[in-house]
C-alpha cells in the first residue's frame, strides 16, 4: 500500500495535494461562513477558460487559471452588490467561460485528453515546478489569511456591525475573493474545475457542522481536507480509479452523515448566536444565508 510513495510522481502529488488541502480548507471555512460557496463554484468554471487558453498558448495551465480567476474574483467583488444576487448573470458568464474553454481546447490538438484533465484534475501528472508554484502561492495565501484573520472573521460573521465599527468591509471582501481565486487555481490541479467543491467546501462544511469555535473548525477542516487528499491519492495510486473520484466520494460520504446526524445546535447557528451575543444586536437586515437558516 505505502510502497508507492517511493515514486517521484506520487511524492509530487502528495506534496502538492497537501498544500492544496490545507489552503482550501482554510479558505473554504470563510467561504462557507460568508455564504459565498456559489462564487467558488463560478470562479473555478471561469478558470477553465483560462487554463484552456494557457494550454493553447503553450503556457502552464496554472498561470492561465490564476489570471482568469483573479480577474473574475476582483470583478465579482467590485460588482458584489449587483452580481451576488444574480444567479442568472453568473450562470450565463460561467456558461460562456466554459464554452470559451472548449473553443480554445478544440483549437489545440490533444483536445479531449487536455479537457478531461483540466475538468477532473491531474494530480498524478504534476511536475516539480507545479509543486513549487503551489507551495509558494499556498504559503502566501495562508500567510495573508492569518494576518487578516480577525477582521476577516468579524466581517464574515457580521458585516453590518463590522462596517459600523470601521472595518473596511468592501476592500476585505475583494481581497478575500482574490484569495479564493488563488486557492481555486491551486485546487484545480488536484480535483479539477468541476469537483472544486469537494476540497474547497466539503471539509469546511463538515467541520462547521461539528464544532462551533472558528479555530477548532478551521483545524478540523484542515485535518479532514488532508486526510481526504492523502487517502484519495493512496487509493488511486494502488488502484485504477481516478483520484478525483475518491476525493469526491470520501468528501460526500463524510459530509452526508454529519449533515444529518450532527445535533442541530452545533455548527453555524451556534457560532452566529455567540457572536451576536457579544456584539450589539444586528439590525433587521439579515443577509441571505441567515434568512434561509431562519426559514427552515
Amino acid at each position: 500500500m505505502f510502497d508507492v510513495l517511493q515514486y517521484p510522481f506520487i511524492q509530487n502529488a502528495f506534496l502538492a495535494g497537501s498544500f492544496v488541502a490545507v489552503v482550501a480548507a482554510i479558505v473554504g471555512y470563510f467561504l462557507v461562513m460568508r455564504g459565498l460557496t456559489f462564487a467558488g463554484h463560478a470562479l473555478s468554471h471561469i478558470g477553465f477558460a483560462g487554463a484552456a487558453g494557457a494550454v493553447l498558448l503553450g503556457v502552464d495551465p496554472v498561470f492561465g487559471l490564476l489570471v482568469f480567476t483573479v480577474g473574475a474574483g476582483v470583478g465579482i467583488g467590485l460588482l458584489s452588490k449587483e452580481i451576488r444576487e444574480r444567479d442568472i448573470a453568473i450562470g450565463v458568464i460561467m456558461t460562456f467561460a466554459l464554452s470559451l474553454g472548449i473553443l480554445f481546447l478544440s483549437l489545440y490538438s490533444g483536445f479531449a485528453e487536455r479537457a478531461y484533465s483540466i475538468l477532473f484534475g491531474t494530480i498524478l501528472g504534476i511536475s516539480q515546478t507545479d509543486v513549487l508554484v503551489t507551495a509558494i502561492f499556498s504559503t502566501l495565501t495562508v500567510g495573508l489569511i492569518l494576518f487578516l484573520f480577525r477582521p476577516l472573521l468579524f466581517t464574515s460573521f457580521d458585516p453590518q456591525v463590522a462596517q459600523a465599527r470601521g472595518v473596511p468591509v468592501r476592500p476585505l471582501s475583494i481581497l478575500f475573493l482574490v484569495l479564493v481565486a488563488v486557492t481555486v487555481s491551486m485546487s484545480v490541479q488536484v480535483v479539477g474545475v468541476l469537483l472544486i467543491f469537494t476540497l474547497l467546501v466539503g471539509p469546511a462544511a463538515t467541520a462547521t457542522r461539528l464544532v462551533a469555535r472558528p479555530a477548532w473548525a478551521i483545524t478540523l477542516a484542515v485535518l479532514l481536507g488532508l486526510s481526504y487528499t492523502w487517502i484519495g491519492i493512496l487509493l488511486a495510486a494502488n488502484g485504477t480509479w481516478p483520484v478525483s473520484f475518491y476525493i469526491a466520494a470520501i468528501s460526500f460520504g463524510v459530509y452526508l452523515p454529519v449533515r444529518f446526524l450532527a445535533p442541530r445546535w452545533v455548527g453555524r447557528r451556534a457560532v452566529k448566536m455567540r457572536v451576536v451575543d457579544q456584539e450589539p444586536p444586528a439590525d433587521a437586515v439579515l443577509n441571505s444565508t441567515q434568512k434561509t437558516e431562519v426559514c427552515t
Binding site: 467543491f197 469537494t198 468528501s251 452526508l256 449533515r259 444565508t289
Partner: peptide, 19 residues
C-alpha cells in the same frame, strides 16, 4: 438556498461520472 448541500450532491454526481 442550500448551496452547500446541492453543491456536494452535484460534485458527487460528477465524481461518479468520472468513475
Amino acid at each position: 438556498g442550500r448551496d452547500v448541500e446541492i453543491g456536494m450532491v452535484l460534485s458527487f454526481a460528477l465524481g461518479l461520472g468520472v468513475l
